[in-house]
Simulated assay, not measured.
Amino acid sequence: MAVPEADAAKAALFDEQRPRMLGLAYRMLGSAAEAEDAVQDAYLRWNAADTAAVRVPAAWLTKVVTNLCLNRLTSAQATRESYIGPWLPEPVLIDDGALGPLETAEQRDSVSVGVLVVLERLTPPERAVFVLREAFGHTHREIADLLDVGEDHSRQLLRRAREHVNAPRRRFAADTAQQRRIVERFFAATVQGDVRALERMLAEDAVAWSDGGGATRAARRPISGRAKVARYLAAVAALPEAEGLRAEAAEVNGESAGVLRIGGELIGVVWLEADSGGRVAAVRAVLNPGKLAYFASQTGTGAHGDADGAPAD
């Protein structure tokens, strides 16, 4: 049966806005799967709405998606408090345009893992204002309309959000080629179990986080200190079940990361954050198979379902 012309136009308009909505939802939630669910919920509302009365569809959809994400963030806070081990964002490839525009440094930075981790510390309204302003360039008047707040309150929320985002970051201003070399050297030393080489590359106060979510064995608390982090990484690579471990550098969330595979199966994505001296200060590893599913679908590879036996802290 043919689709009515008005319905087809309605669906086409939604599809045109989909990348932007998915990008907004991912930045708000830190989860590609949850972002897709929020966008699907927005579609159901759009499909049921009298769109002839909608003056600016993009603004209408932005408001719907933002409010859906605010509701999800409120409930997610309780879920993440009971999450087994550290919680990290889901890895995504961003250069295919699936997450909306990425022309500016602010747009790309807002999907980096370092920023997404810090955004978890914000209140849902602070996170919404930061994303709408920094990643999508909305004015405070527009944000006030989207969130049903005053413009002054929007500015206060953004100021608080920026204080959180900017204060703890110690990023090393390396170009893409330099980032890739750091990643390649670091994971070559890891796979070889070269503790001394790892220690030379790690900052004295380096911290490693492993997100296994209880679905695979991983350290359930952050590991701190150069020597401890180096020994932990070398011990993981030396496990019998890690035989055949391969690490390749790739652009994930707009920055160089190590993509880990065994026998072609994806088992993890690891980001490194360097300090001002170029030493690795933070190691963030997503090992939870559920969190790797979206990235695996983007790369056309399977995600490993279970990996028992990794050292737990």
Rank of each mutant, 00 (worst) to 15 (best):
A144L: 08
K291C: 09
G309M: 10
L73W: 02
S256T: 12
V115Y: 03
V3C: 11
R231D: 05
D194S: 04
S31M: 08
P57Q: 05
T216E: 11
I262T: 15
F130A: 04
T62W: 00
A282E: 11
G225I: 09
F186K: 01
P125V: 05
R108K: 13
G30M: 01
L24F: 10
D96R: 06
S256M: 14
R133C: 07
A208S: 14
F136Y: 15
G214W: 14
E5H: 06
V39Q: 00
I223V: 15
A197E: 14
R127F: 03
R108T: 11
N47H: 12
A215T: 02
D148T: 13
G268Q: 03
W271L: 11
A197S: 13
A296N: 14
E134G: 01
E204R: 15
A218H: 01
P222Y: 02
A38N: 04
E184P: 04
A197P: 05
S276W: 12
D275I: 09
E241T: 07
A238P: 01
R159D: 12
N166S: 12
A188M: 07
L132S: 02
E184N: 10
V3N: 12
R45I: 10
L122K: 04
V191F: 04
E151A: 11
F172H: 15
R220T: 13
A135F: 03
N71Y: 11
R180W: 09
E248A: 15
K10P: 02
A257V: 08
V65F: 03
D96K: 10
L158P: 01
E163S: 06
L202P: 00
G114F: 01
N288E: 11
P222I: 01
Q192P: 05
H140L: 15
Y83Q: 09
A307P: 06
A11C: 11
A197G: 13
G213S: 08
M1P: 01
A59E: 06
E16K: 07
R160N: 09
R72I: 05
L13F: 05
E151C: 08
E126V: 09
V113R: 00
L61N: 00
T51P: 00
A274T: 15
G114Y: 00
L292V: 10
W60I: 03
N71C: 09
Q179K: 10
R171V: 14
G305D: 13
D308E: 14
A219V: 01
S110D: 13
R181I: 06
L70E: 06
E34G: 04
G309C: 10
S82R: 14
A230R: 00
W271F: 15
E81C: 07
A58S: 08
A303R: 00
G23D: 01
A293N: 08
A189K: 01
E106A: 14
F136H: 12
G268V: 02
A303K: 00
V92C: 08
G278F: 07
